[in-house]
Amino acid sequence: MAGIRQMTGGRRILVEADRLGLTALQELVSQGPLTPTVVAIFPLRQTSEAQSSKSGPGKTVLTVVSRG
Results as ranks from 00 to 15, higher is better:
L62N: 03
G3R: 12
T47N: 01
G68T: 12
T60M: 11
F42A: 08
V38P: 03
S53N: 13
A40M: 13
T35R: 15
K59V: 06
A50E: 09
P57H: 05
R12S: 11
S48T: 12
P33L: 05
K54S: 12
L62H: 04
L20Y: 07
Q26C: 06
V39T: 02
T63M: 15
M1F: 08
G10E: 03
A2K: 14
T23W: 02
A40W: 01
S52T: 13
A17G: 09
G58K: 15
V29E: 11
Q31H: 08
Q31T: 11
G10Q: 05
L34Q: 00
M1I: 03
R45G: 10
T47Y: 14
V61M: 09
T63W: 08
L28S: 02
L25F: 07
I41W: 05
T47C: 15
G56Q: 06
L14D: 04
T23H: 06
E16A: 12
L14H: 00
Q6E: 10
L14I: 13
L25H: 04
V39L: 06
A50Y: 06
M7V: 11
Q51W: 07
A17T: 15
T8V: 10
S55D: 13
Q26T: 07
P57Q: 12
V61L: 14
S66T: 01
L28G: 02
T23A: 14
S30F: 01
T37F: 00
G32Y: 07
M7R: 12
V29R: 09
R67A: 07
L62E: 01
S66E: 06
P57C: 04
T8Y: 05
